[in-house]
Structures are given as C-alpha cells and as structure tokens.
Design a protein around this nucleic acid. Structure first.
Lengths: 178, 178
DNA sequence: AGTAATTATTCATCTAGTGAATCATGCAGT
DNA sequence: ACTGCATGATTCACTAGATGAATAATTACT
C-alpha cells in the first residue's frame, strides 16, 4: 500500500481525463455521422472482415441483441454489409463497404489528431513518460491492449456511462481530499 | 504537434483506464447501495451543507430536473434531507442525515483503498510522476480539479454508455495502430 | 430421424438523462 | 399595494442505450 501522503486522486484524474478523451473522440465520430460505439464496430470489422455477429459481440464485450441493433444501423447507413456464410448459413459475415472503409480511414486520422491535441502542452519526454506509465498500469490491471472491454462486467446497472456511469460520478472520487 | 513515432494510444489508454477506475469505484458504491452519481451528490452535499438543488445541479453540470430525481431517491433512502429555506421559501436546503454522513465516510475509505489498488505495482516514484503528469494534463485541458463535469457539453446524445458512451467506443481509439 | 446446441433476431423492459411546461414564491418598479 | 417578470422546484413525456427472455432457422450429435 504505497501511501506517501499524496492525495488519493489518481483514480479521479484517470476517470476525469478518460471521460474527457472519450468526449473528444465522440466529437470526432459525430462529425462522421456515427457514435463512438459504432466507430468501435467499424474498427473491429475493418480488422477482421467476415467476422460473425457473435464474434463481434464477444470482442465488444456486449451481447448479440445489441450487435443486431448496431449492425442494423450501420447497414442502413451503407457502411457495413451482412452476407450469409456459405459454410454455415446461420452466421452473418460482416464486411465494410467502400464508404465504411472511408469512415475507418477518417477515424484513424481523427485519432491521430486527437492524440496530438491530448499531449499538447507536454514535452515529448513527458508524453513518452506518460505513455509508459499508462501502458504499465494497463498491463498491470490485465486490460486488453487491443480492445478495451473496460467496464462491462462490474457495473450491472451501468453504464453507462460513460461513463455512466462515471459522469457525475466524477465528483465522488474527489471525495478523498475534503 | 509532438509526434515522435509513438503509437497514438494515450487517448485510448486514458479512456480505458478511466473506465476501469470508474468501474472499480462503481463496485464500491454498489456495496453501499448507491450509484456513482448518487455518491457524487453525497460528496457535494457533505462539503456544502444547505446547498440548494439549483446550486447542486450547476456543480454537477446537470439540470434541475435530474437533481430532483436524484434527491428523491437519496431522501427516500434516508441519506439526505430537504428543508425549505426560511430566507427564500422557494429553495430546498439539502443536508446529509446521520446515515448520509456515514456513507460519506465509507466512500472516503473506499476511495483511498481504490487509490492504493490502482497504483499497486508502481513504485512510489512512478505513482508520484503519474500523478504529476495527470494533474498537468488536467489543468492544461482546463478541467476542474474539484468536480469533473468532464464530458457533458460535447456529446449531446450521451452520455453515457460510459461510460457509456465510450465503453464499446474503446476499441475505436485503438484503431490508430492497426 | 430425432434431439440438442448455436446464430441471429425480436420484443418487452429498465435506467439515465433531457427539455418543455407548470406551480409557487420572490423581487423590482411604479 | 399592484403588476409583471425572474427564479427554484417539480412533473411529464420522450429519447438513447442496454439487457434478458423467447423465437426461428440452421447445424451438430448420436
């Protein structure tokens, strides 16, 4: 228990900055006409074309019924296609359309621009140090480096929220100081 | 634009770890029978007894109608009292009951335990460095050190699936690497 | 063939949150 | 004192996101 008199705020700062980063990202996706959740789906399909809805649900840490709604929306927007697998006609193979691929490219650009915005004000050394510390923390906590299912199992009534869940929750963590 | 070839993942890591920290905190509050949002309300009332619902809404970055529901719940649970102000009979003065104060103390203990859990695996120097970097980032972004209203204005449809909103969104940010 | 498991889908439900409308009260100007 | 406007709290209808149970189509097992 490393307590050196420092106020207990790392948890608070992480959730605050994480929510802030999520907001910035949501701004970007909104400009592309999709939600952050849908952006995640596009990312995964782009990396694994032909993935099934069941596999996608598992990767997202979500459930199949939720994936149905997400894909319904993306298919309607012309970004994703469903095609029945010839090997197993129960499964729907998911792929990006040309528009979907374009959105994915735009998302990558947006993520890089956001990264620059986030570390703006830090020196390159500081940004590198921060990256190292966050990476270590992430691996220490056993979080997946590729997909952050983050907080799906713990909060049954969730979340939300993004940060449901923690939105207003923010203030609570601050409670350690006063 | 400090880009030194490092993968663009700080944004992703922040949101991932922030969501994780929020989940840990939600676990704690669940054990106390309240949600993270309600914990935030209790924190604020504990620090500012007699605060009005309007002031509370502003501090939370929420709206009055939302506060009504939150206080309804906390009053019903016997943690908070509403009393009409004698100076201005429109305003409801909010205060913690004895049980409410007990919950606030429990929340403080939980936050400290969580802080220890979060930095577990880092050396004290690393924890201090991380705290410094996160604090700098937070002030650079103009985030309030006391209350994180964090991501309320940007995502109109939100927010939530913190949590929401960024839950599944997680994966998207990772999109910078592949 | 017949039974069980699997994939996708629908549906009813829940929660959190928002904005508009309403009510009671306070306050400023006349 | 009277009028009219502003303010705090509340109610209500509505939305978005998420969840779990039930169902249909298909495949796997034996």
């Amino acid at each position: 228990m490393p307590d050196q008199g420092r106020p207990a705020r790392i948890g608070f700062l992480l959730s605050q900055l994480g929510a802030h980063a999520a907001e910035l990202f949501a701004d970007q996706t909104r400009g592309l006409g999709i939600t952050p959740s849908e952006a995640g789906v596009i990312r995964i399909i782009g990396r694994s074309p032909g993935i099934s809805q069941r596999e996608l649900a598992q990767t997202l840490g979500s459930v199949q019924s939720r994936v149905v709604a997400l894909i319904d929306r993306l298919e309607g927007a012309g970004l994703v296609t469903r095609t029945r697998s010839s090997a197993d006609r129960r499964v729907q193979e998911l792929r990006l359309t040309e528009s979907g691929s374009a959105v994915l490219r735009a998302l990558r650009h947006a993520a890089e621009a956001q990264e620059a915005a986030i570390v703006d004000g830090l020196t390159p050394d500081q940004a590198t140090a921060l990256f190292g510390l966050l990476s270590k923390l992430s691996s220490l906590r056993g979080l997946d480096a590729e997909v952050h299912i983050g907080y799906r199992e713990a909060a049954s009534p969730v979340k939300s929220t993004v940060p449901t869940s923690y939105h207003d929750a923010a203030s609570p963590l601050k409670s350690t100081a006063p």
